Amino acid sequence: MNIIISNSSDKPIYEQIATQIKKIIISGELSPGEALPSMRFLAKELRISVITTKRAYSDLERDGFIETVTGKGSFVANQNLSFIREEQLRLAEEFLQKAVDTAKSSDISCEELKDMLEILYGGEEA
């Protein structure tokens, strides 16, 4: 599993780890039931605190991406990936609705909002 940490990111390290593991799971790179690296191993590999990896794994477990078995480790949850994707879409929709509401109340046009979204998304088509 290839996880890249950016010290210049405005996101906390645990969030960067969780986001990347989510992407790996959703892409199918990791299958349901497959073991994740131990928290200690991942912390050592990334040269970060075990507390940071514990927070990332806790968030992943809370969101239903992984299951942790005491004494055995953490594994990709057997949950339906389409359900997880749908949940992520719902979350994105909530944030976008807040952005639309803010734009409307600030007299920002739909076109300006689309331009911002494309820039934030990295220039890719939304």
Rank of each mutant, 00 (worst) to 15 (best):
S74N: 10
G71L: 10
A92H: 12
L30Y: 00
S8N: 05
P37Q: 13
G64H: 13
F41H: 14
A99S: 15
R90W: 07
K54P: 01
R90K: 11
L60F: 06
E34I: 10
I3C: 01
P32C: 06
D59L: 13
Q79S: 04
L42S: 03
S49Q: 08
D115A: 11
A92E: 05
F95W: 05
R47A: 13
E112M: 10
L30R: 04
E86A: 09
L81T: 14
L113E: 04
S105Q: 15
D115L: 14
L36F: 02
T68F: 07
Y121N: 12
A103K: 04
Y57H: 02
K54D: 04
E111R: 07
K23W: 05
L91S: 12
A99D: 09
E15R: 14
E125T: 13
L120F: 04
A18I: 01
I21G: 00
E124P: 01
A35W: 00
E15D: 15
M1N: 02
L117C: 12
S31N: 13
K44G: 11
V100I: 15
S8I: 12
V76I: 09
L89K: 15
I26Y: 00
D59P: 00
E124T: 15
V50T: 11
P37E: 05
G123N: 11
P12A: 11
S27E: 15
N7G: 15
V69E: 13
C110G: 08
G122W: 06
E94S: 15
S109T: 15
L117Q: 07
I13A: 12
T70R: 06
P12I: 04
L117Y: 13
A126M: 12
K54I: 03
E118L: 08
K23C: 05
K22Y: 00
D10C: 07
T68N: 10
D59C: 10
K72T: 11
Y121L: 12
L96V: 05
D101Q: 04
K114Y: 09
I21R: 00
K104A: 06
P32Q: 06
E67Q: 07
V100N: 06
F65W: 03
I3S: 05
D10P: 01
E67F: 09
R40T: 06
E15N: 07
E111N: 11
G122D: 10
A56Q: 02
G28E: 09
S27H: 05
A18F: 00
I51H: 05
K98P: 05
L120Y: 07
L60Y: 02
P32G: 09
D101Y: 01
E61P: 03
A99N: 12
I24H: 08
F83A: 07
S9A: 14
N80R: 06
F75P: 04
Q20I: 04
G33E: 04
L96C: 08
Y121G: 14
S58Q: 10
F75S: 03
Q88E: 14
S49R: 08
D107Y: 10
D10T: 14
L36A: 03
M1P: 15
K114I: 15
A126S: 14
T102R: 08
L60H: 01
I4D: 01
I13T: 15
E34C: 08
Q79H: 10
I4R: 10
V50Y: 04
G28R: 06
F83H: 05
T68H: 08
